[in-house]
Design a protein around this nucleic acid. Structure first.
Lengths: 147, 147
DNA sequence: TTATAATTGTTGCGTAAGCAACAGTTGCAT
DNA sequence: ATGCAACTGTTGCTTACGCAACAATTATAA
């Protein structure tokens, strides 16, 4: 009955357009979630970041290589585990991160116009549960591909 | 305060993975929204479809060219407007569309586990309003890029 | 210890999708 | 009627990202 996924995909794409239009020059393009995650908790491994934002580790690796080349992040090997690279924001990233946050805030403000706090609370609560269910699906899929 | 967009993007990507894992062989990959829209209302123009699912018209053009090459859709020039191409599903598409719908239904069922009908109703209502607001933003952007 | 399995990151390959530029068609203003 | 603007679709270019394969490291089991 519900075709909510269509709305969800549309909103996702619109936000991407919005962000690119606002920040296109500064940050590359769609790495905003990534840099926000890095600044929220510096020193995480690439794998950790990939799982957090649910993007393939290859995409994270390439995004970070690009961000590092542009001087936005630094990657240091984990002394306790030579496989891991720990990711840190640079000064350059910390300088522009407020503008990233402000664009995000502007987006949030505009799209939530006409929605009461109570409604929004329910919305978010449901959304988080859907996210949790969605994560479970893809995790289980890689374990039992054909069942 | 709300970092709901992260959830939204994650859910979007998870659904894409899920669909590909289930239908990868039959339909190309991420053209599910498109073929569903085509079957829901045969004979729409490419531009109409692009606006409906909020994808750039170039993407729709390429997707339809690919779908046509594989025999899933047919494009006929609009007799009333030589610019337009009207898109129709073929028998081949109509045969597999039930499996597309069933995968979508399975996804919807799983991700909405543990959510009451009342909550889901609020969720959808809010989601639709956010979609409407998001569409307005990108529409206005192309009119007034710097304001 | 040694062999096997699991982590972590990188690379090759393919597809999706956005933006800009373009061509053909239609609508509109004058 | 003529010229300009808007609409519709296509193509070139770029980037994002998923999957599979691989290399290096670490964990586990024997």
């Amino acid at each position: 009955m519900p075709k909510f996924m269509k709305s969800l995909n549309i909103i996702s794409r619109c936000q991407s357009s919005f962000r690119n239009a606002k920040l296109g020059s500064e940050l590359c393009s769609a790495h905003h979630s990534l840099v926000l995650a890095i600044c929220r908790e510096p020193g995480r491994s690439q794998d950790d970041l990939a799982k957090d934002i649910c993007i393939d580790k290859s995409g994270v690796a390439r995004a970070l290589a690009s961000l590092e080349a542009k001087g936005f992040v630094e990657r240091k090997p984990d002394p306790n585990n030579k496989r891991k690279l720990l990711v840190f924001p640079t000064e350059k990233l910390l300088e522009i991160i407020p503008s990233v946050r402000s664009v995000t805030a502007e987006w949030n403000r505009i799209v939530s116009e006409g929605i009461s706090e109570e409604e929004f609370a329910v919305f978010q609560s449901v959304l988080f549960r859907i996210e949790k269910n969605a994560r479970k699906i893809v995790d289980n899929q890689e374990v039992t591909p054909e069942k």
